[in-house]
Nucleic acid binder design. Sequence first.
DNA 1: CAGTGAGCGAGCTTCCGCTTGACTT
Length: 784
Amino acid sequence: MAKNLVIVESPAKAKTIEKILGNDFEVKSCFGHIRDLEKDDMGIDIPNNFKPKYIVPEDKEKVVKDLKKLAKETDEVWLATDEDREGEAISWHLCEVLGLDPVNTKRIVFHEITKSAIEKAVRQPRLLDMNMVHAQQARRILDRIVGFELSPVLWRKMSMRNSLSAGRVQSVAVRLIVEREREINAFNSVSTFKVEAWFTGKDISGKNISFKAEGPTKFKTAEDAEKFLQQCVGAAYTVKDIQVKPGKKSPAAPFTTSTLQQEASRKLGYSVSKTMLLAQKLYESGKITYMRTDSVNLSDTALANIQKEINTSFGEKYHQHRKFKNKNESAQEAHEAIRPTYMENHTDDDSDTKRLYDLIWKRTIASQMSDAELEKTIAKIDISTNHEELTASGEVLKFDGFLKVYLESRDEEDVTEEEEDQEGSLPPLTVKQALDLKEMKATERFSRPAPRYTEASLVKKLEELGIGRPSTYAPTITTIQKRNYVEKRDKEGVKREYRILLLKDNQISKNTDSENTGAEKSKLFPTDLGMIVTDFLNQYFDSVMDYGFTAKIEEEFDEIAGGKQVWNKMLNNFYQPFHKAVQDTLENAERVKGERLLGEDKESGKPIVARMGRYGPMIQIGKAEDEEKPRFAKLKATQSIETITMEEAMELFKLPRTLGQFEGSDVVVNIGRFGPYAQHDKQFYSLKKEMDPYTVELDEVGPLIAEKRTAKSERTIKVFEKEKIQILKGPYGPYIKQGLRNFKIPKEKIDTAADLTVEEAKAIIEDVKANPPKKKAPAKKKKA
DNA sequence: CAGTGAGCGAGCTTCCGCTTGACTT
């Protein structure tokens, strides 16, 4: 038995560190937090100065038991959890649970897993920082109070009230999406006219050249643009001036969790959860450093390896030592940046993780490479018939530097229109050179609203606001979608006409062309529920919904950590007004329906409203108290209470439609709980995505019925008619179905499932019934 | 599996931040 027990948070880390420390040390992991607030009664004794009631969650019991045993057997326990607020608290909980005295237990920290860093840490142990622990405790309790007092308010006050939730992080994330959506809906696009001219000529050596130049300004109206083109009729064009300016580009910092999620989204199209899943795999197989980090720091060992790699692969002039600083004040920097563990592994052989690994390798190596050097050329072109001038610009790469391996992509909203017209190189020109105008065009361009958030751009925004942590970005994005506040989907663009004025051969002609606009892919849209909940929370709990709330309380947590404020006093200052708002809201707020009056029914004169019903957004014609029952129709998935028009609403009442007869019985189309479907002979058939229930025709439904029939026969391996037992092929392999129940076939019989006899199948069913498979343990309710 | 829409109210839900597997009809 080793003399020393070192406890870290991550098991992968434990393995690595054990190798470094040698035989006297046994390194174990506690798998993150080992205690949490009890759920009953919020787990907080509020009148008793917010005294927390901690328990060991069921899934951590084994970990705690094992650590207790080891702690007893060893001479000395070293607490080596991460050096941040949460890590300090985990160490304190370990003391509490393992019966260690915080005043003489050794606490060590390191920010990188290297031999020198770990050996240095062991030489300089410190003690637990109780102020830091109290800061974490205040954070934990505040989040519990906000979540567990606000959520029940929603259950009482929303017309749709199944498993709604609110919290310091998630509710603000939804707010961002809701406000962006409204910004887009309220956006009024204005158009301007942009002038471009294409020239031809000859360079000094007599070679033919051609290039593009841009007009003096964007014209506000077609008339202004035409006037300008008119002035250019018959003009001569000469190069008036050429300016050459050097420029440079620098590489981006190495990856943090949030920047990795953003780049993987932009370059590879991964969702944030997919990125984290793949990164976790790479981490567990020892290929990259820890993937949940807010640090851009690289260890000295890593820097040396990167330099070596650059020198051998690209040459010394490509290397430039850089130290990146974190822009984010809320960063706690308990780890390194995300980088390959071994730079000499240029790629990964696993096809699943390869693309992400390549991205991390390139980003890491580029971060220590030289600037790219550019030469920007701007040529002014004189127009003989007026005082305006045209501008041609070009960019030439003189030295590629880091661009040899990697260039960071940008978000849609950060790219300006000028950058969109990508600059190529300009042919060599000379001052006073005469040019021939091939054609000049004034094209109508429309201003665009801010784009909707992607998962990754939302993470970026949250990080900027200091809301959430690397370990919670992905789960938060999942939560707000699971709660149906937000949905990720595509939006089809609409066709829009734009005008073009063309000057060619001294003639001006007018034309229109069309473009697709407003198309979006994998963007976050708020649902009606998300909007209604956000409006409600904004109205009654504006302080928690404020974008600066987290930043403000983080300052206070820092004061607690610095010993300048007492944790339970801070909590009390927050709690008094907050709790009062909760009570006022419960007493006074009306139940929220999100109702919007669309107009009157032409035939009956009854009011038509869009509102939230118990089962989702809908249109209602007439009132509940009318003699005649109101008519109802559910909104389509892409429609919203806020934007639906009267016309679109009336369209919804056209279902159900009877299309005609097939094999002697009616085919009826409707939209149900699981989307559009056709009903025929008591069977249901889901309509294909591209089939619109409002316009679909009979001859399109026939193939659907046939398809389902063959799919069913293909899925069937064997049928025992009399016993009502079927052997079917499912997504997880063959299984047995009797009546409505499914039964798992034991592993050893999976391969020969087709040969099962009715007796064998029966035996399996009896077996499963006798030993039902363990279900996911539902949260155990404790009885006093 | 393809309904519903009023009101009352059992009995349920819920937070954020640390960490990984177990397991799927």
